[in-house]
């Protein structure tokens, strides 16, 4: 192997250095990020940043409208909020059903490359089309209402979860899977007994996180007539009923916080 000189003085031993190519790539990456930020500065009108502070009185007057939340119609708000959560729940569950097979097919260590790459591109497509657009497509197909919202969430979230699931599968320890293979098990057994137990906690965690964010996304879907609290929110905004808007926001915040607490408790039990 390597021949070490018999008497090498300790002071001659240089610490390891990173190769020049690696340092240049780092420089290009971070330099590129700085250039991108500078280039985008005027496009997103970042020069308006000081206006937030100089126009604070105008914001204050606007915000004052929100200071008196109008809860007079609270049963309506709570009912709509529940519908929104129901949309999020079904959307997320369907997304998980879609994401399990696609996530396994998109993993390098499970599928051959001629399956894995096309599935990856399909997932890109599912994630890239905004859920609002998918919602519109389903409204055309099945009519106005919550079901279009469910399908929009299911497809968009299915793409996101499948990608996350496949990355979890790619980072598993291959040895237990080899152990299952060595007993003469079928390939599907390798997945069920070797892979799923390893990715279970991470998959659960991802799915719960997506349920939380879908509770928010389902609100926005009200914009295209998918029903729920979002629809009430936009109706109130359009009629300048800021008291009602404030009350609806309070309901949303409370609901999202409750889901957050619930999923934390679930995660603690499952992991």
């Amino acid at each position: 192997m390597s021949q070490t000189p018999a008497a090498s003085p300790m002071s001659d031993l240089a610490p390891p250095t990173r190769p020049l190519a690696g340092r240049l790539i780092d420089l290009a990456l971070f330099g590129g990020l700085v250039i991108l930020l500078a280039w985008s500065f005027s496009a997103v009108e970042m020069r308006h940043l000081p206006l937030i502070f100089s126009n604070s009185t105008r914001i204050g007057n606007f915000a004052a409208g929100f200071l008196h939340p109008d809860f007079s119609q609270w049963p309506l708000f709570v009912g709509a909020m529940v519908l929104t959560l129901q949309i999020a729940l079904w959307g997320t569950v369907l997304a998980i059903v879609i994401a399990i097979p696609l996530g396994l097919l998109a993993a390098k260590n499970v599928s051959p490359i001629w399956v894995q790459q096309p599935v990856r591109r399909l997932l890109d497509l599912m994630r890239a089309v905004p859920d609002l657009v998918i919602g519109y497509i389903f409204i055309v197909a099945v009519g106005l209402g919550p079901f279009a919202g469910v399908m929009a969430l299911a497809i968009n979230t299915g793409g996101v979860l499948a990608k996350l699931f496949s990355e979890a599968v790619e980072s598993i320890d291959p040895q237990p899977v080899e152990g299952v293979r060595a007993v003469g098990a079928a390939p599907i057994h390798e997945v069920v007994w070797g892979i799923l137990p390893q990715v279970g906690p991470l998959w659960t965690s991802y799915a719960l996180y997506r349920f939380e964010s879908n509770a928010r996304s389902a609100t926005v879907l009200g914009l295209i007539g998918a029903g729920g609290i979002g629809q009430l929110l936009f109706d109130s905004l359009n009629t300048y009923a800021y008291g009602q808007v404030a009350a609806i926001i309070v309901v949303i915040v409370v609901a999202v916080s409750l889901i957050d607490l619930l999923s934390q408790a679930l995660r603690a039990r499952l992991l």
């Binding site: 040895q175 152990g179 060595a182 007993v183 003469g184 137990p197 906690p201």
Partner: peptide, 21 residues
């Protein structure tokens, strides 16, 4: 090969058990 593997038990250095099961 699965039918042959069923007749052969394999023991690994790192046990290759599924840790969470």
């Amino acid at each position: 090969v699965q039918a042959v593997r069923a007749r052969i038990g394999f023991i690994f250095q790192s046990f290759n058990l599924v840790g969470r099961l």
